[in-house]
Design a protein around this nucleic acid. Structure first.
Lengths: 206, 206
DNA sequence: CCATCTGTCTACCATATGGTAGAGAGGTTC
DNA sequence: GAACCTCTCTACCATATGGTAGACAGATGG
């Protein structure tokens, strides 16, 4: 069934980019169908409703992101600073290759409840695992002591910041080149590392 | 003209919240009108088109955010770490009081060109000023040396991270209380401070 | 007391949207 | 070769959307 997979995959692909870049509610089935070069009803043949399409897009996006992250984790040393670094870099690579992916993540909080909930079911264990990992490394003294959930949120914010900032900055007139982006990423990682490294005198703001 | 202002203001208010939380394209004029308790045509009387309404919402949001930030800057010491701290706190206060505000900012990059461009015209000088300020403070050795545009982006990411993370984390099962949020904010500010403080040995990732 | 102006409304309209019904083309199986 | 299956299409449909036309109520002012 080569034809079958091909059309379905092309629809999923176009929908991922359009949903991620413009927002789920802003993109109509007609637009997606036109982009793929197919009748809307062909689209509805493969995905019986828009909700089904959204669901499929989210699931494939999670898989696409996870694959890169898992590989990066396996390839990294076991020091948490290196591991976090590797994960952030992996997500960054995904985001550069496919800006829509993190756009989708950012989109989650405004999804209709049904889709959002099912996605939450998929993500909760992943986040839980990360939080437990960070907590254990803090106990071992290899990360600055803090609420591990906060650190997870900080990493997430850094990553989405790195990945979606260019887009936002473009809106205020800064159009970074690829080289600038790479440097920006390195500096951002250095900041993250500085923020997470333990045993440095930090003036806490109470 | 008390009646006049009142209806217009109520429309602007409801539109700000709905656009910011659900996205501009996802919210119809009917929904806004119903929320305000007024006929759609009353809304179109005050804002001749949806684009006009969006524009007005963006402008008032920029003003609302700027007022708090400017006040925080005036009230802070002139040390950049304190000043950044004050600005971030001010934005955070705005975001807690009105979660839609940062949602709108996040929304900018996917706005139709006309609105996006006009907003960019309003924001570019503000961002430019911040970047020049950060650069000067780095030259004076009071901030870690880096690309000031990056630092601006980092602060922005931190703020939107702080402000929109709760929403995103709720989607993965963590429902932070107000107290947790406050602590989370403090820790995040400490991280930011640690990342920006100069003269600390930082292991740079090349 | 008439004219005007302001603000809100009811009644429409053209278009776009998500979705249904069903036909037909091409291959596979018995 | 007839029945079936897979895939794509054209033709619709009900609803929702942004927007227009114009009526009506009340204040204002000469």
């Amino acid at each position: 069934m080569p034809q079958k997979s091909s059309t379905r995959a092309r629809i999923l692909d176009a929908a991922t980019d359009l949903f991620g870049l413009r927002g789920v509610e802003a993109v109509s089935l007609d637009v997606i169908a036109a982009e793929v070069g197919v009748a809307k009803q062909t689209l509805l043949y493969w995905f019986p409703s828009k909700d089904d399409l959204v669901q499929a897009v989210l699931e494939s996006a999670v898989v696409e992101l996870s694959v890169g992250v898992e590989a990066a984790i396996r390839a990294s040393t076991d020091h948490p600073l290196d591991r976090i670094d590797a994960v952030v870099r992996a997500v960054f690579r995904s985001a550069v290759r496919r800006p829509a992916l993190l756009g989708l993540v950012r989109e989650v909080s405004r999804l209709p409840a049904a889709n959002g909930d099912r996605l939450a079911d998929a993500l909760t264990p992943l986040v839980g695992r990360a939080v437990r990992y960070l907590g254990a490394e803090m106990d071992a003294g290899r990360l600055r002591r803090a609420d591990p959930r906060l650190v997870a949120a900080l990493c997430y914010a850094t990553v989405t910041g790195i990945a979606t900032e260019p887009e936002a900055l473009r809106a205020v007139g800064w159009r970074p080149t690829t080289a600038e982006l790479r440097r920006l990423r390195s500096e951002m990682l250095a900041f993250l590392r500085a923020a997470l490294t333990p045993d440095e005198p930090v003036r806490l703001v109470q």
